[in-house]
Write a protein that binds this DNA or RNA. Structure first.
Length: 267
DNA sequence: GTGTCATGCGTAT
DNA sequence: TACGCCTGACACG
């Protein structure tokens, strides 16, 4: 169940094992017909993540486009390979390593221009953190007459943020999810962008979403935080705010729950 | 065993 | 706003 940090981490870790190798590609589940055969025997040149999307570039120019959706899961395996699960959509093998993918929302082979179109549609990615990232975000945001809580989940506005980061980032910068996107001051938008860069990069590094500060809990490292001490507001409705003790609220925001502190994040 | 929920997203109404 | 799609973990009987 991935937000952007998971895909960047996957690209980085899989890259170490698979790029530069000629790979065997198969689909035990059989729902990647035409794709597996087309990629089989090609060399994998590069893996790129943007937002929640992954692009595997092969030497013919073909790009394997994967979006995990809510359920998709990668497993990287080493010899001796275990039996693939029946719902395995893609198996990609080198001589020594195997990538096992199950349950993706999207899994398709694209021409380079098609893959480029997917990437161009997406808003700036905080983990890529390109120089024009903030301006691009601000510009895409200012066109939306929706709340900021909705807007940062729209992948065309900013890519990679999911439901956990939405609530956590807005709490961290003290912005109510119910503020209209157009009304957010550019300085606050900048803060939101910079906080996104910080948190998503941290998430990519450790492979977990942890937004709280360990020192607030009397421990040194994030990994020493208890399971329930890692987030400020996500799924903490009815519990006291970690900063001010006010009761955390939850409400549907664009079809999914958002959590916020009404005192730290006033409307 | 069955039911519910989840870090997502596209399409129809 | 509702539903379909993809799967696994967990709570409950």
């Amino acid at each position: 169940m991935p937000e952007g940090h998971v895909l960047h981490r996957a690209a980085r870790l899989q890259g170490k094992r698979f790029t530069g190798h000629v790979v065997n590609v198969a689909s035990p589940q059989g729902r990647f017909r035409g794709g597996a055969e087309r990629l089989n025997g090609q060399q994998l040149d590069d893996i790129e993540a943007k937002g929640k999307h992954l692009f595997y570039r092969f030497d013919s120019g073909d790009e394997l486009h994967i979006h995990l959706g809510l359920f998709g899961k990668f497993r990287v395996q080493k010899l001796p390979f275990p039996e693939p699960s029946p719902n395995c959509r893609v198996l990609m093998d080198t001589e020594t390593d195997r990538l096992h993918l199950a349950g993706p929302n999207q899994c398709e082979v694209l021409e380079p221009w098609e893959a480029e179109a997917v990437r161009n549609r997406l808003g700036p990615d905080p983990i890529q953190n390109r120089p024009d990232g903030y301006e691009d975000f601000l510009e895409r945001l200012s066109r939306r007459s929706i709340t900021i809580g909705k807007a940062i989940m729209v992948q065309d506005v900013i890519s990679g943020i999911g439901n956990i980061y939405r609530s956590e980032l807005l709490f961290q910068i003290g912005l109510s999810p119910w503020t209209r996107a157009k009304d957010v001051h550019p300085e606050t938008v900048k803060q939101l962008w910079e906080q996104s860069v910080l948190e998503l990069k941290a998430g990519e590094k450790i492979g977990k979403i942890i937004t709280t500060n360990p020192s607030e809990f009397g421990v040194e490292k994030r990994k020493d935080l208890g399971r329930w001490d890692r987030l400020y507001v996500y799924k903490r409705h009815g519990r006291p705010c970690r900063r001010c003790e006010t009761e955390i609220l939850a409400a549907d925001c664009d079809g999914r729950n958002a959590w916020w502190c009404p005192s730290c994040q006033p409307d």
